[in-house]
Design a protein around this nucleic acid. Structure first.
Lengths: 207, 207, 207, 207
DNA sequence: GATGAATGAGCTTTCATTCAT
DNA sequence: CATGAATGAAAGCTCATTCAT
């Protein structure tokens, strides 16, 4: 125990818990879970591994999470929350404040941003992991909201705004997901791809 | 081959019969494996279940497949082979035999066909199952070949054919995969979607 | 008692308050334990549940009880005490104050009373729970005392009073236990059963 | 391999399995389970212990029993079957072939026989172990059948044969259970007790 | 004394794989 | 080759108990 002054003999024990890690057990467990999923996928995700990586006992894991799925559920909740936050950003835009060009740019950049945040984890959560009906509903709800918002922005400026919005959302999501999350078939430099995607959506929008 | 007496007369036919039976066993196992994967997913895919559904002993499964992953590997091989076959169809087309419209139509219809063949199995193989590096390379190779073929068809009729081909392949694949395999975010009736996808690609192609 | 300064003035009252609180905590824990045992049986009896139902911390449970079995032990003690109390009632009866009929009636009613007091808990304590040798000895001792008291009452009025007393005590206990505690094999209406049991004992007593 | 004629070199491999132990895995598991229950009770009954005592792997236990309860279920089935067999013995007796005295003697001896067959196991199965509704129904059914058979024998020779039969069955069962299974309160020498029980039932029967 | 987060031994169950027949 | 009983590592989860605060 170096640097422990003689004046305070173990006086502030509360500090110790906060000190070294500065976050609580729940957070430590969730971080470990995310790390395992991102690094080795759903197959390697077991509660003993989570406890070991988190540096807590298996008992503590079950103190805070009813079961394995509950950990996953929180991770998914947070993951989806970031998607919802992205949409919330679009919600405030006035319909006529932006040109169609700018709308498309925002759309593509938004999806890229979402898919570039911890892509490994993103991939596992969206592909390998078993999704509960609740979470699936939530995903669909997010998509619907994104489409509705985009349709609103397109209203009066493009034919069939609802259908076009759906196509654009799906195309932007699916392609950026492939490129950044699945790391599958990246055709060229990222900025070039982004450029092409914007052109594709732009030309589709105005035929 | 000790103890093999010279008296055995019909040796070739006998082995042929065995081979036929073996091939049949392999096939029966693969069918059972595919059924389990399609019906209940990767989590339910275990070798004892495969043997039971196939109507063979677990010992026979290991006679023909080194381990669980080997079964999966063959299934993936066949799955990818169907994608390759689809591409092979495009390979024979003369560059100027088709209009751009027709090229886009063939492209979209091709991806729909691929993704509508046993979509449940398709989904499990492309999302849940652990993919080996070898298979991932193969997937990328198929994609590259598809892009190259399409670029060839576009050559001289569109700017930057290589890049445009990549975008079109990825967009067509990603969107049809979503719609037909993931059954995620289906915006409208299938034929309407197909129509929209074709318009999107068409307008992108000619700006 | 080191470090106990002489300056503490109101030592008795303070300790009394603590004792009162402690007694209350003990009581609260025992009530919770009894409730869990009665409601869900020995399998559901765990110290965390006891603490939760009691509204105290798990730490407090271990402050007052060395371990899980210690809680059970107190519950068993109290349970047996009620049996002893019932016997104490018989102890005061003068040998010739009662007819044989009345003795049999008192006997049967006594056992019914004992077995009808919280039969669910009674059942769990007498069947599911692991009984220590000490408690088993105590049970045997209670029985012996009951037999001795009954034999005393029968003395001079029936042949072989000791043996007859043992039979009567065992029969009355075993049958009322079955009927009211185990709820097993209830042949008819309770009062009819009671009537039959009395007749059986009465006729046995006088042959 | 003595007595193995040279004419059949390792021809009957099936023999070995039967040879050393002369019983199959299922039986070995059930014996181990019964031993554990009889020796240390339900609390010590865990599948690992069963496998260890049986000398088989834990996997083999689950090869033959769906879960822990399934092992118990078979044990209970066999246990109850012995009770049913005892009753079946009474079923064949002609109503007037026996005196009341002999009927009572058979009854008491029957219950003693049932309760003296592995009393330790009997105790655990009837008191500690969780009983399924199916088994409870079966127990009640056995009792009903025993009562019906006895009532038949008493018919025309005693008042209220149904009620008297129920009382006699319950009394004989409850008391012999106490004495031989619970080893609780054994009042005197076994034969003396038997004698007293017979007198009690006899006098009750004829008032 | 009171608290309750933390611990970890121990239990149930699954399933990939082996190997004697 | 075919069989399938047997294996045992490994995973999910519980709960009696401790101990720092």
């Amino acid at each position: 125990m170096p640097r422990q002054t003689a004046a305070s003999p173990a006086r502030k024990p509360a500090r110790r818990a906060v000190q070294a890690r500065s976050r609580n057990t729940v957070e430590v467990i969730l971080e470990a879970a995310a790390r395992i999923l991102a690094a080795d996928g759903w197959a390697a995700f077991n509660t003993n591994a989570v406890a070991r990586i988190a540096g807590v006992s298996i008992g503590s894991v079950y103190e805070y999470f009813a079961n394995k799925e509950a950990i996953l559920d929180v991770l998914l909740d947070r993951h989806l929350a970031s998607g919802e936050a992205q949409i919330a950003g679009l919600a405030g835009i006035a319909s006529d404040a932006l040109s169609l060009d700018e709308i498309v740019r925002l759309l593509v950049e938004g999806f890229i941003a979402v898919h570039q945040d911890n892509p490994k984890l993103h991939r596992v959560l969206s592909a390998e992991v078993p999704i509960s009906d609740r979470q699936r509903d939530r995903i669909n709800h997010i998509r619907s909201r994104a489409i509705a918002l985009l349709a609103d922005l397109l209203n009066g400026r493009a034919a069939r705004p609802q259908l076009k919005a759906a196509m654009m959302i799906d195309a932007a999501d699916a392609l950026t997901h492939r490129w950044f999350v699945d790391e599958q078939g990246v055709p060229a430099r990222p900025d070039e791809m982004t450029q092409e995607l914007r052109q594709m959506l732009r030309s589709y929008l105005t035929q």
